[in-house]
Simulated assay, not measured.
Amino acid sequence: MSGPANDPGRLPTVTGQVEDWTRLQIDCVRRWHDEPIANPHSGWLAWVCQQHAFNFQLWHEEDVARNPNVTDARIAQVKRSIDRLNQQRNDWIEKLDDAITESIHQSGVAVSEDAPINTETPGSAIDRLSIMSLRLYHYAEHLQRKDVDAEHRTKVETRWLLCQVQHADLSASLQTLMDDLFAGRKRHKTYRQMKMYNDPSLNPEMTG
C-alpha cells in the first residue's frame, strides 16, 4: 500500500471529528472492493486509513483461511499472512494512540493526576470501528443476494441493523472520550500490547 502513512517517523496532529474518521473507513471499504488499496490522505487521516487497511486485508485473509476447499499449503501461507497483518494492525493502534498523546501534549492540556483513565484507548476504539465498517459492508452485501430464503434475509437484516446501532454507539462514545481527553477530564496512555507470538526471543517455536 502506497501513501503518506508509510512514513511513520513523525507523529501527526489529530484532526477532525470521529464522524470524519468513520466516514473514511466506510468509504475505503466500498472503494477497496473495486479498486486496489490506496491511501490518498495526509496527516492524521492517513494514519487512520493505514490502520484500517490492515484490517481490510486481515478480514479477507481470514475468509480464505476458513475455506474448506483450499490446500494445506495455502492455509499455511494465509496463516503467516494473518499473523503479519494482525501484528501490523496492533502496531498501528499504538501509533494512533501515540499521536493522540502527542497532540494532547502539544495542545497544552492540563490533566490532573487523579483524572480517570478509560478502559479502552481511542486507538482501540478506532480499530473496532474499522472492523465494524467491514462487517456492515459485508452484511449489506448479503442483503442484496437473490439466492437466499426469507429466513436468511431476516437474520442478516437483524444483524445489520444491530451493527448500525453498535457503530453509532461506539462512534458517539469515542467522540465523548476524545472531548474529555482534550479537555483534561480524562488521562490518556498508550497501552503496549506486547504481542509475543511474532518475537523469536519469546516464542520458543521460532527459535529452532
Score class of each variant (00 low, 15 high):
K95W: 07
V48N: 08
E102H: 13
D83I: 07
F182H: 14
R135D: 12
E120W: 11
E157S: 13
D127F: 11
G184P: 04
D169I: 06
T207G: 06
T22K: 09
L24D: 11
G16L: 08
A168E: 04
N6C: 08
S173T: 15
V165Y: 12
W32N: 05
H33C: 10
Q166N: 07
P12H: 02
A140R: 03
V111R: 07
V29W: 02
S81G: 05
H167A: 05
L162V: 07
N203Q: 03
W32P: 05
H167V: 09
L177A: 00
L170E: 01
M132T: 03
A46R: 03
Q57C: 11
C163K: 07
M206N: 00
S171T: 15
W47C: 08
D7V: 09
R145P: 06
D72A: 14
R159I: 14
H52N: 05
Y191R: 09
R89T: 01
C163I: 04
R89V: 08
G208C: 01
P122V: 03
D147L: 04
E120F: 11
A125G: 05
D7H: 09
A168L: 10
H167Q: 13
V148S: 10
W47N: 10
L134V: 02
V29G: 05
N203M: 04
E35S: 11
A76Y: 10
P12G: 09
H167M: 03
L177F: 00
Y139P: 02
V148W: 01
E151T: 06
L161E: 14
Q77W: 13
D149A: 09
S107F: 08
L174Q: 04
L96F: 09
N67F: 00
D34M: 10
C49P: 02
Q144N: 07
H41V: 01
P116T: 00
I75S: 11
L24G: 05
K189C: 05
W47S: 01
Q57H: 09
R128E: 02
M132D: 03
E151V: 07
L181N: 09
L177E: 10
E205I: 02
S107H: 03
S107R: 12
V18I: 14
A99H: 04
L177Q: 12
D169S: 13
H105W: 13
R80Y: 02
I26W: 15
W59P: 03
E19A: 11
A5E: 06
S2R: 11
R153L: 04
D149T: 03
R10W: 02
D199V: 15
T154H: 09
L11M: 11
I26G: 06
S42H: 13
Q25T: 11
R135P: 02
D179T: 13
N69W: 14
D63L: 12
D180L: 05
S133D: 00
Q17R: 15
E62Y: 07
A183L: 14
A140D: 12
T190E: 09
V156D: 07
L85A: 05
L162T: 05
L58H: 12
F54E: 05
E19N: 15
K79S: 14
N198A: 08
L181Q: 07
D83A: 12
I100M: 00
I131F: 09
H138A: 03
E19G: 12
V29F: 13
T176C: 11
V78I: 08
D83W: 08
Y197E: 08
